[in-house]
Design a protein around this nucleic acid. Structure first.
Lengths: 235, 235
DNA sequence: ACGATTTTGTTCTCGCGTTCACAAACTTCT
DNA sequence: AGAAGTTTGTGAACGCGAGAACAAAATCGT
């Protein structure tokens, strides 16, 4: 409250700072949130941008600039109130509400995701699990029964599911994706090693385990190849 | 072969193109590689940058620029030889050799990773699994027995493991990381929701499932909040 | 053999994100 | 109260990556 009067650029209807937060910043907010939670659990009441930056593994100037997009929640000469800032970031991300997610494809990875406690603790409730294999339908994973893909649309609509997680093999991914979109899901987290095509209003994020390893391998190869240590110091 | 004579910038000792590939490009090479493999499996012999870009889900200009960092492997007026380009990218990433990886923390996620066939098929061989829990040591997962953490250093050195995967809870991650680094691992793929501190010569990549969901939630919230469709078209 | 066509490789421009550096604002000490 | 010390918020400079656009090089048809 008592929001700042210090805005310089006097454009009209420029009241809300939360107009456009850069994508790179959005990706870091969850990291800050986690750092704040850790600090809060250690009964730290206030933290400077330096402290926070260290805890989050980033540079302090970047952290301050990121936070400045949300508003002015710090106090000069003091730092940030840990719990207050935590709440503000959570609100900005949208974690003051609960989100329902469904997981499609209950193989090895789907199993792990269904049992992952980190989702529930951050406000993501797994509403249903799906698999194509009729053998698997009815099987209990975690505290949910696996449903048939045919029931996807009904369940998604009834539970107002906005986020779908795809953990199928690559070949099935696009089909499942289409079904999810058809059912009204507008955000998709894709673990399948496949490129998904979606309508413009749908967001897709991709997590690809073997790509990460390949990127590491590239750098590893370079290190081993005799560059680096030698050539770097030379000139 | 018959490599191009067309280099314009006549700087001396500028022979090798593979001096510095931008990080953003490196991250996309595995995607191209996968697209090429798919095409090759469909018996496609040649593909244009447009074809490849579509298959990889990127813009064709970006793809061409990315490939140009590796060398001139295309033929103007024709396109790229699928298998030849595939080999060149694989070589560049370092997939012409096999990489040994170890997985530490055989919980839900560790299990899934140990069984993930996508690793082996891309030249990543899981050399060993580790867990702190003495109950678990000796248990068979996939075709490997879980080893005790105490044996980590010996096994890592013997198998010349360069890449370690951390799938422990957050609290154990830094300790495990230190052990891996101590044992000589110089690339780490971290699934634990924690910030790792490592010496400069060690690469860390982080995969965080709940952060991905939180990023989706942010955008989802914005969509639902009445912006987007309405305000976007207005002015 | 030569023009028309295709498609690559590269140059150029633009925008985003990172980092530096500093004034403004707050606290604390005397 | 005033000076000294902290720490935030942000303006400005810089570097990297994305995309448009085009010239160079290869094929194809006649």
């Amino acid at each position: 409250m008592t929001s700042a009067r210090s805005r310089k650029s006097g454009r009209a209807r420029d009241e809300r700072p939360e107009r456009g937060i850069p994508e790179a910043t959005v990706a870091r907010l969850p990291v800050y949130l986690r750092a704040l939670t850790t600090l809060s659990d250690s009964d730290v009441a206030t933290a400077s941008s330096e402290d926070l930056a260290t805890a989050a593994g980033v540079n302090s100037a970047k952290l301050r600039k990121d936070l400045s997009y949300l508003g002015t929640y710090g106090t000069r000469g003091v730092g940030y109130d840990v719990n207050y800032l935590r709440y503000q970031i959570a609100r900005e991300i949208g974690l003051t509400q609960d989100w329902s997610v469904v997981i499609v494809g209950i193989g090895n990875l789907g199993h792990a995701l269904a049992n992952y406690s980190g989702f529930a603790s951050r406000g993501f409730q797994v509403a249903a699990l799906f698999d194509v294999d009729p053998e698997r339908v009815g099987e209990v994973v975690g505290d949910l029964k696996i449903s048939a893909l045919a029931d996807l649309e009904v369940i998604v609509r009834e539970s107002a599911v906005a986020i779908g997680v795809i953990a199928t093999p690559a070949g099935a991914a696009q089909g499942v994706c289409d079904q999810l979109v058809e059912a009204g899901v507008s955000s998709i987290l894709n673990f399948a090693p496949a490129v998904l095509t979606v309508p413009g209003h749908v967001d897709v994020r991709k997590v690809d385990l073997s790509i990460e390893l390949q990127i590491l391998a590239y750098h590893e190869q370079r290190k081993a190849h005799g560059f680096g240590a030698l050539e770097a110091g030379a000139l």
